[in-house]
Design a binder for these strands. Structure first.
Lengths: 337, 337
DNA sequence: TGTTAGCACTCTGTTCTATCGAGTGCTAAT
DNA sequence: ATTAGCACTCGATAGAACAGAGTGCTAACA
């Protein structure tokens, strides 16, 4: 790929990102004041298409970037992705409007991400399934309720209230506490499954409903608490011309409603804390996302980690989005809340 | 409104609900084997339109029900809204597939509602804002974390973990505990606002960040925990012909993203526990909902109340929806989980 | 007086055609 | 290697014609 081809590919992608319309040779020359004739550009375009970086919607239309084209753009062309002063001041304004609770309130954070990027924002707490249970503690609060504390391998403490059925004595609760600890200590969260529950129920002599409660609470730590997915800005994508067809929108949203798939998508390959992970269209392996791109990054907040994603059209403003995410990481790591 | 007009209105609404297309006199006669000529029906239709129960999309189209028409249908025509055996068995199948946790897990419940009705389901815990705080308790867990317990006026206990900044002594925590109790005891949740926070910060001499933490946690009880909104089935509405236009969809979803409005909508008029509340189109006062209807009901679950709503097109299958909600209430009150 | 047949009219949606315009690929000239 | 020229392609747009479903009105009828 020679320098001129890079330049042309860059120009086409930039134009297509902002216009959403196929770019022709003539238009390109005009808009970028290139010192070549349209015919030359056409030749280069034909080459780029042959190489797989561009595609043509129909025989006699301009070119649009292919997924491979976007990939090349993201990997090898994009350089400066710092925020413009305008963007920066807008972000700061939105942050101050959101209040103090950004890092504590995923919904607020999601709203901010969506507002800034004008794409869909996704926030997940990274999966803790390999954590093991260090200790489980039952603290009676009253005759009918107690708090169950779970201390995990890394020292984090989770807790949840459970209600105690009538007629259960303190002794029974103590016995249960001992039993639960003996059986669950050291068990990884990912192994809290229904098979385990069956064996628990078989082994324990006392009140089974309490065992159930505790079991589901611990399981909840893993599934719901540890893997909650917060989303915002779904309507933003409806502004994009690629989604003016309701059927596409329906397929897209239907996939979004299946949290597991999205969590999987955000989980895979996000191990690198350093930077961010970009998935373009077909790379996600979901038919309904074939015209989308997803930018995923994992953040260290003050007290925990979160994984966040920006889902936009494949024709996404990569520079701006990446710039914002990097800025946000900087913001949090330098004490922003 | 004489008997024949009722009959005709009923027939038109039924047909329109299932077909989504304006109903003409000829079609109506054929489909319902009415012993009158189309011309007579036309006269009656013209009357019904004059009375406000029907409207015409254009001069030479059939009639569709007006909001007033739906209102009359719901209030005065609808009688039998019990589930058909097929529906019933489908519901039971879905419930058993969902597992045990229906009444504990709002998301599961929302998913069920959406699946059964094929509309949008909304679940909110009813607002507890008038509750007052009876007691606040800080339980240190370790040097850097504690649990904050809040006992509300009705005896319910809420809790949340907070992290303790370095260098804060046990004495300070005790002092804070005393201070917080003195200042917040008896305060209603709805009065936990930023003005109160300011005066707290002004009065307290110790670590302000801890005050903030507790304050936001209590506030969270009210806003997020007490008023969380769970939604499912948004894609269902995209199947309906009235939403084949992306712009309408965008407006609708944009409104749905503003939880406060929806919560307000579900809160108003849902005081009657007995039955359910139906809001038709313009009655909701939201432009983007003008072609929708909302059915709201409040449920007594084993340990708490929830308000749930079904949002569908104004052309909703009212009988089925109402029947299902009544059945579900029966199911929960007779020990279903 | 309520009901109905007949008729002219209205309005939408569809299909077909013509046309415009942006863009391409190819060839030959520079 | 670059470019001017040219024939061709294809989508989008606009207009015309037409079919179909439905209405309102009038006059006849039981």
């Amino acid at each position: 790929m020679d320098k001129r081809k890079r330049l042309i590919l860059h120009a086409i992608i930039q134009d297509y990102i902002s216009s959403a319309e196929p770019i022709g040779s003539r238009t390109l020359v005009k808009r970028h004041q290139i010192d070549l004739s349209p015919a030359t550009i056409r030749n280069e375009m034909a080459d780029l298409e042959e190489m797989g970086y561009l595609q043509q919607p129909h025989t006699s239309a301009g070119r649009i970037p292919s997924p491979k084209g976007y990939r090349y753009y993201v990997n090898s062309i994009l350089e400066d992705s710092s925020l413009t002063p305008q963007d920066l001041s807008r972000v700061e304004e939105l942050i101050s409007a959101a209040g103090i609770s950004l890092s504590k309130n995923p919904r607020q954070l999601a709203r901010l991400l969506a507002a800034v990027t004008s794409y869909i924002s996704l926030i997940a707490e990274p999966s803790d399934n390999v954590q093991d249970i260090r200790h489980i503690n039952l603290i009676p609060l009253s005759a009918t309720s107690a708090i169950c504390l779970v201390v995990l391998g890394d020292g984090t403490v989770k807790h949840h209230s459970i209600s105690i059925p009538e007629g259960v004595t303190t002794q029974e609760i103590d016995a249960l506490s001992v039993f639960i600890n003996r059986r669950l200590q050291g068990v990884q969260l990912q192994h809290i499954d229904s098979r385990l529950l069956c064996s628990l129920r078989a082994e324990f002599a006392g009140n089974l409903s309490l065992v159930d409660d505790i079991f589901y609470m611990v399981r909840h730590l893993m599934v719901a608490d540890g893997q909650e997915l917060v989303m915002d800005g779904a309507t933003n994508l409806l502004k994009e011309p690629e989604f003016k067809d309701v059927d596409k929108v329906r397929e897209l949203f239907r996939t979004l409603e299946q949290n597991e798939q999205i969590l999987k998508l955000m989980g895979s390959g996000s191990s690198r804390l350093e930077d961010l992970d970009i998935k373009i269209g077909p790379e996600m392996g979901l038919e309904s996302f074939s015209e989308c791109s997803l930018v995923v990054a994992t953040f260290n907040l003050t007290d925990r980690k979160v994984t966040l994603g920006i889902l936009g059209p494949a024709r996404m403003q990569y520079a701006k989005t990446i710039g914002f995410i990097r800025w946000l990481r900087e913001y949090f790591s330098s004490g922003g809340s």
